[in-house]
């Protein structure tokens, strides 16, 4: 069994002494994701695109509700029979990875797997202090949860003639709201 350090698996010149949030936002943008820090900016973006009906984790809604206007319809219970009704889904992320622009979800933190997957727009609420620098650090921090998922940008495919199309089975728009 070869002995090696996981530094080997860290991209060079990525983090340096830079702030993890800056790197995270930059890397997320490279995979066509969006990092925001202001809930008002999030609401403006949703309104602008007419994404007015969505699902929100009930534990997040009290803090977010004041930013949303009466033109929005937000449900805090998810009904799988109306999968196409939700234009957006807001759920908590347990963390993020700066190096790759990844958000980390797990069963304990994410209120509904489906709520984070089926809407066209997924908004993951990430705590700023929970951004890992790189993959080895994030692997070491997987924790005891039986289901952890790293999400790096919107769902995509290049199966048809190698042409990139976003929004295959999962979200076509991936937003991280860093708080």
């Amino acid at each position: 069994m070869p002995d090696y350090t996981t530094e080997l698996a860290v991209m060079r010149q990525m983090m340096g002494s830079r702030d993890a949030l800056v790197v995270f936002a930059e890397r997320l943008a490279l995979v066509n994701g969006i990092a925001l820090t202001d809930p008002a900016a999030l609401v403006a973006r949703l309104r602008e695109n007419k994404w007015l009906h969505g699902y929100c984790d009930p534990t997040l809604w009290p803090a977010l509700a004041p930013f949303f206007g009466a033109d929005f319809k937000v449900e805090t219970t998810y009904d799988r029979k109306r999968v196409d009704d939700y234009a957006f889904g807001i759920t908590r992320a347990v963390g993020a990875i700066a190096e790759t622009g990844t958000i980390v979800l797990n069963d304990a933190t994410t209120s509904r797997r489906l709520g984070a997957l089926t809407p066209w727009v997924h908004i993951a609420v990430v705590e700023r202090a929970r951004i890992f620098s790189d993959l080895p650090e994030a692997v070491a921090g997987l924790g005891p949860d039986t289901n952890v998922i790293w999400v790096t940008g919107p769902s995509k495919t290049a199966d048809v003639e190698g042409i990139l199309i976003e929004g295959v089975h999962g979200p076509g728009v991936q937003i991280a709201l860093v708080v």
């Binding site: 995979v31 990844t102 039986t146 998922i149 940008g153």
Partner: peptide
């Protein structure tokens, strides 16, 4: 990194619907 990287070590957590 691929878009989705899943780590599955068992059935869903009891609190997850």
């Amino acid at each position: 990194l691929t878009v989705y990287t899943e780590y599955i070590s068992g059935p869903k957590s009891p609190t997850q619907p």
